[in-house]
Amino acid sequence: MKLIGPAFALVAVLIASAGCGLFTSGDSPRQPSPERSTLRVGVADPIDTAPLRIAVAAGKFRESGLDVELVDLGGDDGVAKLTAGQVDVTFGSDVSLFRAAAGGTALQLQGEAYTSGRNTIALVTLPGSNYDEPTAKKAPKIAVYRQDDIGALTARSILATAGVDPAKIHLVPSPYQQMPQTLQAGGADAAVMVEPYITRAEKELGAQILADGSNGATLDFPSSGYAATGAFAAANPRTLSAFRHVLTQAQQTAADPATVRDALPSLSDIDETTAALISLGTYPTTLSATRLQRVADLMHSSGQIPNRLDVQAMLPPEDQQ
């Protein structure tokens, strides 16, 4: 037994140093190269996309023969840029991706980005608010980023679970940055915020969490992912396979929250103190149709999409069962 360790180590060293020289061309068939060497990927939320950004900065995609160019989406619709050919892969909330698919846009999912965790999305109020529990108002005004995105879906789920009639909820569109001002001005009773806006509002304004958004039907809820058009996926299967492979490795490194917290200040405008305090969800390493179907089914049951969407059909062929 004592000989196995050193012997194995010696073989490993020889393989690492000699590389392919240890194999004949017949022993190790050359892997086909990606159809293209450059992939333009639209990105937004720095927390959701942190593993991807870290991997790009570390040159991990180049090691697989792929030069990933990150395109900041800002407030633009990633799917619109995708269909216009301005990006090859886009990041987006699962709700926005499934809404586009339900509307007839052919999309192939390339990876899950982020799953909500405790207090990563929440119903927030400011000090002095008379809205101190979800059922305190029969017709609450709730600030959400968009009326048809994950915040709206979460708000309706939270309040319906608490016993509020979803039909009486008034959704008030507001950018995350302006939600505190909306609350201060009385434009909304509460706001559905995500990190780092929750932590910033707590630090700067003494904001309070009225209800955790990761609860009930939205417990550990899939939040976001990456997608390509069906046409691009059909024409570039090896390119996207290489992208998914490195993305999976990147997501695995984010299992340690410190990896994300340490990187956020260099990836975004999130300062070190806020990065240390924010609540973090998880970074899935697999594409799960079962997990993602929860989002599509909740969208259907809440009326966001007219017909039930089959998420399984949106996965790459090797992930379909």
Rank of each mutant, 00 (worst) to 15 (best):
Q178S: 06
A185L: 15
A228D: 11
Y197V: 06
Y114M: 12
D220L: 07
L210A: 00
K137Q: 09
L159W: 02
L123I: 00
A185F: 13
M179Y: 03
R118A: 13
F221M: 12
I121L: 12
I198L: 02
E204P: 09
D165A: 07
S174K: 11
T120F: 01
A162R: 00
A188P: 06
P175G: 07
S214Y: 00
L109D: 01
Y197C: 02
I158D: 00
N130G: 10
A136S: 15
A160W: 06
G225E: 01
G213Y: 04
A188H: 05
L107V: 10
A113M: 00
T199E: 15
D220K: 09
S224F: 05
R156H: 07
Q184A: 15
Q147W: 04
I142H: 09
S224D: 00
I169L: 09
Q181M: 11
V194I: 14
G117H: 13
N215V: 07
D189K: 09
A160S: 15
L205N: 01
A167Y: 06
A201S: 15
K137M: 14
P134I: 07
N119Y: 15
N130H: 11
K203L: 13
A190R: 04
K203T: 12
T154Y: 02
P140H: 03
P175W: 00
I158H: 05
T218S: 10
K141F: 03
A136F: 09
T154Q: 05
A207Y: 00
T125Y: 12
Q208R: 15
K138Q: 13
G187Q: 09
S224Q: 09
D149F: 03
L183M: 03
N215S: 15
T199Q: 12
Q147E: 15
P127S: 03
D132C: 14
T115H: 00
K168Q: 14
Y226C: 08
P175M: 14
R118F: 11
G163W: 02
L183F: 03
G117V: 02
E133M: 11
L183W: 00
T199H: 13
S174D: 01
P173K: 06
D132I: 14
